[in-house]
Amino acid sequence: MVEIQMSTLGLVDEWKKPAHGTQYLAALSASMGAMAVGSAIGYSSPASAALLSKPPTNTSDNTTSAPEWLAENDHQLSLTPMENNWFAASLSAGALVGCVVAGFSLNTLGRKGTMLASLVPLMLGWALIGFAQNIGMLVTGRVLCGLCTGITSLVCPTYTTEYASKDIRGALGSGFQLFITIGILYAYLFGAVVESWRWLVLVCAVVGGIYFLLAIFIKESPTFLLSKGKEEEARASMQYFRGTACDISPEVDTANSPGTFAAYVCMCLGCIFNIFSGPLSGYISSFRIYTGQDKGDTPVSSKVVIDLMRAAGLLGKGYEVHTDNWYTSPCLFHYLPSRWVSSVSTVRVDRKCMPRDLQLKARGDVNCRSTKTGMMCLQWGPSQCCSRVTRARWS
């Protein structure tokens, strides 16, 4: 008899457990907003590589011309480094305004209404960026995308925590940050294969379209409905999320609208600190994926060095760069002095364009070769063969 009673109690407890399927579906719908935000954050990185103005090339007899991948595309809009910084950072300015807007719209439009409304500035922003003809259109588009970023960063976590049951609330809440990262990765991966920054806009805007389609079918937050005195609608919404077999009466009776003011203040302060930390802080503006598919004269490893030095503003200032074997190439060492950079590096003898007659005959020997352009390669063998290539900048 005792076993039967315990079994019966177990069935009752199992019957009272909330269903999870509808909650996971709603979390996926809200998390697509986070992915849309992530794609907006990550977009500036691959776009910057195409938008940045390219430095002039030196075609004198003493240097080789810059590789084709460094040539300026006259048919595309180009930005100066400072303009590019503001293009990347203007997203956070829009996010600051978005947090303020979200604080009011959460309790007027509701959670679902605010999510749908946030897509208006997002799509307008992508349209402005895609059809941009000047820096003003680019920055305005980024600010509009940032407006959606600020709204989404407040409304989606709020919505998820209000409908989620206690046993999976933590797991569903963590999905927001996860999908932001996925969105950034999404922009990076497609940025590596989509050459045009305008077409990349379309790829990123697709995520917003999916977010819209999913958000249409989600239920409004029960907490918001209760705050507006709509108890019957709130019970129907809660029953949808918990399943028909779950008793929702205790949860509805004790439900109160959680204070969103604290989250609102934290998001606003975060955006303020981000903006005043500098135009490059918080959002990515210099990230490049090297696929190794470029068949040009300049090795991918050398492009990494040039891109990093350009992003850091080190070209043309008389610095000296030291690299190891993987990053070294004669092509790189011909290019750097034309940008007023000295270079010293170790290198393998069988590297492309290295002199083939540079061979040691005995241990302890030293051998060297030099070119008319001032590049010298030195090889010595104290215990094992070592090679070094160097070239000084022009004086």
Results as ranks from 00 to 15, higher is better:
Cys99Ala: 08
Cys99Leu: 01
Val100Leu: 05
Val100Asp: 00
Val100Gly: 02
Val101Met: 14
Ala102Lys: 10
Ala102Tyr: 06
Phe104Pro: 01
Phe104Leu: 08
Phe104Asp: 07
Ser105Gly: 09
Leu106Asp: 15
Thr108Lys: 13
Thr108Ala: 03
Leu109Cys: 04
Gly110Trp: 04
Gly110Leu: 00
Arg111Ala: 12
Arg111Tyr: 13
Gly113Ile: 11
Thr114Ala: 11
Met115Ile: 15
Leu116Tyr: 13
Leu116Glu: 06
Leu116Ile: 14
Leu116Ala: 12
Leu116Gln: 11
Ser118Gln: 01
Leu119Gln: 00
Leu119Lys: 02
Pro121Asp: 00
Pro121Asn: 05
Leu122Pro: 05
Leu124Lys: 02
Leu124Phe: 00
Gly125Tyr: 01
Gly125Met: 12
Trp126Ala: 01
Trp126Arg: 13
Trp126Tyr: 12
Ala127Asn: 08
Ala127Trp: 08
Ala127Tyr: 09
Gly130Trp: 00
Phe131Leu: 12
Phe131Met: 13
Ala132Met: 03
Ala132Asp: 10
Gln133Thr: 09
Gly136Val: 15
Met137Asn: 05
Leu138Ala: 13
Thr140Met: 11
Thr140Ser: 06
Thr140Phe: 08
Gly141Cys: 01
Val143Arg: 00
Leu144Thr: 08
Cys145Met: 09
Cys145Trp: 05
Gly146Cys: 12
Leu147Gly: 04
Cys148Asn: 06
Thr149Arg: 04
Thr149Gly: 04
Thr149Asp: 03
Gly150Phe: 01
Ile151Ala: 08
Thr152Ile: 07
Leu154Thr: 04
Val155Phe: 08
Val155Ala: 02
Cys156Thr: 14
Cys156Ala: 15
Thr158Phe: 14
Tyr159Ala: 08
Thr160Ile: 12
Thr160Asn: 10
Thr161Trp: 03
Thr161Arg: 01
Glu162Gln: 09
Glu162Gly: 04
Tyr163Pro: 04
Ala164Arg: 02
Ser165Cys: 04
Ser165Ile: 07
Lys166His: 08
Arg169Val: 10
Gly170Arg: 04
Gly170Val: 10
Gly170Tyr: 06
Ala171Phe: 15
Ala171Asn: 14
Leu172Met: 11
Leu172Glu: 07
Gly173Glu: 02
Gly175Leu: 14
Phe176Thr: 09
Phe176Glu: 02
Gln177Glu: 10
